[in-house]
């Protein structure tokens, strides 16, 4: 594979995928999409980045370890779940605020963002873990 073309493509494709993933996350409550799908798309962007520029660059682009992404994602999900106690009666009891012009915002959205973060962390975690040792791009491989 021609690394130059790949790198050029990745340079533009990866940010596009990130934006797409955020859009999928945002609209997921009302149209196909959501935290999982968004997270998978964003994770794919990381994978692409890794293929083009190598795992070190991908890790840098991730702005934090996969472990941190996952921990924070789980913390967000747990926090959203526990907010049910604060605003409602039980675990995961959804609380909503109607924001004019934007629509209803609520704890399920926080929850979905947590899911998104965990999926991003997991996909990049798998990729970085499985990356063969010493196989940096540029070094010729299949």
């Amino acid at each position: 594979m021609n690394t130059v073309i790949l790198r050029t493509a990745a340079r533009y494709l990866a940010p596009t995928l990130i934006i797409l993933s955020l859009w999928l996350l945002w609209r997921g409550h009302n149209a196909p999409g959501g935290g999982f799908i968004g997270g998978l798309v964003a994770g794919s962007a990381v994978v692409l980045h890794a293929i083009a520029f190598g795992p070190v660059a991908a890790r840098r682009a991730l702005r934090g370890s996969p472990r941190a992404w996952m921990a924070i994602g789980m913390a967000l999900a747990l926090g959203a779940a526990l907010l049910g106690f604060v605003f409602g009666e039980t675990l995961l009891d959804a609380a909503w605020v109607d924001v004019p012009g934007v629509g209803p915002l609520g704890t399920p959205l926080i929850f979905d963002v947590g899911v998104f973060a965990v999926v991003v962390g997991a996909v990049s975690g798998f990729t970085l873990a499985l990356w063969p040792e010493g196989a940096e791009p540029g070094a010729e491989e299949a």
Partner: peptide, 16 residues
């Protein structure tokens, strides 16, 4: 559930 995507509402709310 304030959402139009029933599957997503199930995932993040009904069966969160």
């Amino acid at each position: 559930g304030y959402g139009r995507n029933v599957v997503n509402v199930i995932l993040v709310d009904f069966r969160a």
